[in-house]
Amino acid sequence: MLVALTVVTSVTALLLAAWCGWAAYRDQSTKDWHFIGMAVVTGLALVQLVVGIVQLARGEKPDQGTTIFVAYLLGAFACVPAAAFMSLAERTRWGSVTVAASGVVLAVLEVRLYDIWGG
Rank of each mutant, 00 (worst) to 15 (best):
R91N: 13
A101I: 09
I36Y: 09
E60C: 09
G75F: 03
T98I: 11
F69Y: 15
F85P: 03
D32R: 14
H34M: 12
G103A: 06
L106T: 06
E110D: 15
T92G: 10
L46A: 14
A23D: 09
T67S: 13
G103T: 03
G65K: 10
W117P: 01
T67M: 10
L88A: 10
Q48E: 08
V47K: 01
A71H: 04
V104N: 03
F77A: 06
V99K: 00
L74Y: 11
V111Y: 14
Q48V: 01
T98E: 04
A18C: 06
A57R: 13
G65H: 09
Q48I: 03
R112G: 02
V111W: 13
P81M: 05
V111T: 14
H34K: 06
T67G: 12
S96G: 04
A39K: 09
T66Y: 09
G37M: 06
W19Y: 10
V104D: 03
K61E: 11
V3E: 14
V111A: 15
G95K: 00
V11N: 13
V80F: 05
I53N: 11
V99W: 00
D32N: 12
Q28Y: 11
A82Q: 02
L88R: 15
T98H: 01
L109M: 12
G95V: 01
F69K: 02
R93L: 10
F69N: 03
V99H: 02
T67V: 13
S96Q: 02
L16M: 11
S10I: 08
A13D: 03
L2K: 11
T66S: 10
G43P: 07
G118E: 12
L16D: 02
W94C: 04
L113H: 05
V111H: 15
R58H: 14
V7F: 14
V97C: 10
S29R: 12
P62T: 13
G75A: 08
T98G: 05
P62G: 05
L14M: 14
L56G: 06
G119F: 04
Y114L: 13
T98K: 04
V11F: 07
Y25P: 05
T98S: 07
W94G: 02
W94N: 04
F85R: 08
P62H: 09
S29Y: 02
V54N: 07
A23L: 10
V40T: 09
T67N: 14
W33H: 14
S29H: 02
A101E: 05
D32L: 14
T42I: 04
E90L: 07
L73P: 01
P81N: 03
L73K: 00
R58E: 08
I36Q: 06
G118N: 11
A101M: 08
V3Q: 15
L73H: 00
V97N: 08
S96I: 02
L16I: 11
P62L: 09
L14W: 05
V47E: 01
S87Y: 00
F77K: 04
